[in-house]
Design a protein around this nucleic acid. Structure first.
Length: 482
RNA sequence: CGGGGCGUAGCGCAGCCUGGUUAGCGCACUUGACUGGGGGUCAAGGGGCCGGAGGUUCAAAUCCUCUCGCCCCGACCA
C-alpha cells in the first residue's frame, strides 16, 4: 500500500523511541508541556482513553466494595518522614511547597508523590473498632514525582492515577485484598486493554518503599522490554504503626491495622500504545477506543450531498443506540486524508458511504489492520459491526499474547542469558535465581536486565541458580524494563 | 545528575563554521475556483521580536557567557 510513503511516523525498526513519540503526536494523544519540566498535556483524544480506563476500573473497584474519596494534594513534610523506608524511597523525588499566601510556611508541604501518609493520618481518626474494618478507599488523583528522566505517559513528573488504600483487622484479610486487586488489574489489562500480563511478586529491591511485599502485573512491549503496569502492596502494619492507626478487637485489645495500597496510572496508556500500535499509528482495542467507528461520507461532483450525509447520520444514530461510539466525519477534507487521520488515531474500523453504496444499499468497511475494504450490506449493519469489534478485541489480545510467547524463553546458563540481553535487546526470560540480592544486583549490573517478578502462576520447577548454582524451586522472570 | 544531540512560522527543517540591508524551504493554515472511493490541483494570501537573559561588535539567528526546555544513552522510578 501507499501508506508507508505517506506516513509521518518513524518505523519501529528504525527508531523505536521516536516511533513511540510519533504515534502519540500523530494520534493526537498528548504533547510535552515544555513550560513545566517533565510534564505533559493530555489532549482530548488521549484523555478520552483515560476516561474509559477510569470508568471500567472504577466499576470493578465498586463491585468489590471500595468507595471513592479525596485527600489533600499537599502533605505536611513531617508525615512523609514518619515511615523510615518511605522517606528514603521518596525523598529524592519530592517537590516541596515552602511559601504560601506571601509568607514562608512554618512547615513545608510536599506535593503528594503517593498518599499513604496523609491517608494513614485520617485512617487513624476514622478507625476505632474492628467494626470499622475493613475500610476500603480509593482515590482518583494526580501525583508528582520529580523524576530525572521523563517519557510521555511512561514517566512524567505529574501523572494521573488511582490509589487504593485499605485497612484490615488481620494480615490474612489484607493479603487477600492485595491478591484481589492484583487480579482485578490483570483482568482489566487482558479484557479491556487486550494486553496480556504476568502476575508476580517483586523482589526486595523492587519493593514499594515501606511495603512488606509488592506484587505487580508485567506486560511485554513490542521491543521485548517489560512494563510494570500496576502494583498492589501489602503494607503490613508499617504505616499503621507510623500513624498509630489502631482498633479494638473483639477481646477489647488494641491492635494496629493491616494496610494495603494499589495503583495504576496514565502509564497504562503508554502500555496500550506499545502493545498494539504499528508503523501507521495507534491501534486501540475497541473497548477503550474513544471512536470505534469512523464514518466517512464520500461526495462526488453530481451527487446529492444531503442524501449521503443523512445516510451517514442514520448509521451513526443506529450505532449509538447499540452503544457503539461512531463519528461522522463531515469535514471538508479529501477522503484519503480522513482515512489516514482515523488510522493514526486508532479507530478500530471505518465505514465509507458514497453514491455507489447508496445505490447498492451497502457501505464499504475497512478494519484498522486490514489491507482491503469489504462491502457490507446495510441489513443488520449494527450486528455486523458489533461482531467485528468483538472479534477485533479478541484478535488484538491473541496477537499480543502470541508475540509475547514468541519472545519468551527459558534459559539455564549465564552465558546464554548475557547473549539474549546484549546491546539494547530484551525478551522475557525465565531463569533460576538463588534468591540473593547479590546475584540480582550482579545480573542487573552486567546485563541491565532485572527480575520483573517472581511469577505467581509459574509451575514449580526445581533447578539451579544460573550464577551461584544453588538449588532453586522455580524460575523467575527477567527482562529489561521501562 | 553524567555523556551525547537539539531549540529558527502550527509541524519538520535549511541558514550559523566564515557576523552584513527584506531570514528561507516543505508541509500545514486562510480565501476562491475546480475537485472528491487512499494524504488533490491551480491561483492569491497570512503567519517569525531565530527558546530566554546578558555580553562582544558600527552590525548578532550566526561569536562568547549564563539560563530554560526537549530528545537519546546511563543511574532512579508507576
Amino acid at each position: 500500500m501507499s501508506q508507508q510513503s505517506a506516513s509521518r511516523i518513524t518505523p519501529r525498526a528504525e527508531d523505536y523511541s521516536r516511533w513511540y513519540l510519533d504515534v502519540i503526536r500523530q494520534g493526537d494523544l498528548a504533547e510535552p508541556a515544555e513550560v513545566v519540566k517533565g510534564a505533559m498535556v493530555i489532549k482530548p483524544h488521549g484523555f478520552a482513553i483515560w476516561e474509559k480506563i477510569q470508568r471500567a476500573l472504577d466499576d470493578m473497584f465498586k463491585e468489590t466494595g471500595h468507595q471513592n474519596a479525596y485527600f489533600p494534594l499537599l502533605i505536611p513534610e513531617s508525615f512523609i518522614k514518619k515511615e523510615a523506608e518511605h522517606v528514603d524511597g521518596f525523598s529524592p523525588e519530592l517537590a516541596v511547597v515552602t511559601h504560601a499566601g506571601g509568607k514562608e510556611l512554618e512547615e513545608p508541604y510536599v506535593i503528594r508523590p503517593t498518599s499513604e501518609t496523609i491517608i494513614g493520618h485520617f485512617f487513624q481518626r476514622w478507625i476505632e473498632s474492628y467494626r470499622d474494618l475493613p475500610l476500603l478507599i480509593n482515590q482518583w488523583a494526580n501525583v508528582m514525582r520529580w523524576e530525572l528522566r521523563t517519557r510521555m505517559f511512561l514517566r512524567t513528573s505529574e501523572f494521573l492515577w488511582q490509589e487504593g488504600h485499605t485497612a484490615h483487622a488481620n494480615h490474612a484479610e489484607a493479603k487477600e485484598e492485595v491478591q484481589r486487586m492484583l487480579r482485578i488489574y490483570a483482568r482489566f489489562a487482558e479484557e479491556w486493554m487486550a494486553m496480556p500480563v504476568i502476575c508476580g511478586e517483586k523482589t526486595a529491591s523492587e519493593r514499594f518503599a515501606g511495603a512488606l511485599e509488592t506484587y505487580s502485573i508485567e506486560a511485554m512491549m513490542q521491543d521485548g522490554k517489560a512494563l510494570q503496569a500496576g502494583t498492589s502492596h501489602d503494607l503490613g502494619q508499617n504505616f499503621g504503626k507510623a500513624f498509630d492507626v489502631t482498633f479494638q478487637n473483639e477481646k477489647g485489645e488494641s491492635e494496629h491495622v493491616w494496610q494495603t495500597s494499589w495503583g495504576v496510572s496514565t502509564r497504562l496508556i503508554g502500555g496500550l500504545i506499545m502493545t498494539h500500535s504499528d508503523d501507521n499509528g495507534l491501534v486501540l482495542p475497541p473497548k477503550l477506543a474513544p471512536v470505534q467507528v469512523a464514518i466517512i461520507p464520500i461526495l462526488a461532483k453530481n451527487c446529492d450531498e444531503n442524501q449521503i450525509f443523512s445516510a451517514c447520520d442514520k448509521i451513526q444514530e443506529e450505532l449509538k443506540a447499540e452503544g457503539i461510539s461512531a463519528v461522522c466525519d463531515k469535514r471538508d477534507y479529501k477522503p484519503g486524508y480522513k482515512y489516514h487521520e482515523w488510522e493514526q488515531k486508532g479507530a478500530p474500523m471505518r465505514i465509507e458511504i458514497g453514491p455507489r453504496d447508496l445505490e447498492k444499499n451497502q457501505v464499504m468497511m475497512k478494519g484498522r489492520l486490514e489491507q482491503e475494504k469489504t462491502p457490507l450490506s446495510m441489513d443488520n449493519l449494527r450486528g455486523k459491526i458489533q461482531a467485528y469489534l468483538d472479534k477485533y478485541q479478541t484478535m488484538l489480545f491473541e496477537r499480543a499474547k502470541t508475540r509475547r510467547e514468541e519472545s519468551t524463553i527459558n534459559i539455564d546458563t549465564y552465558d546464554e542469558f548475557k547473549n539474549v540481553f546484549a546491546g539494547q535487546n530484551s525478551r522475557f526470560v525465565y531463569a533460576h535465581w538463588d534468591g540473593s540480592a547479590e546475584t540480582e544486583a550482579k545480573i542487573k549490573e552486567e546485563t541491565k536486565a532485572t527480575i520483573r517478578c517472581i511469577p505467581l502462576d509459574q509451575p514449580e520447577e526445581p533447578g539451579h541458580c544460573m550464577i551461584s548454582g544453588a538449588p532453586t524451586k522455580k524460575r523467575v522472570l527477567f527482562a529489561k524494563s521501562y
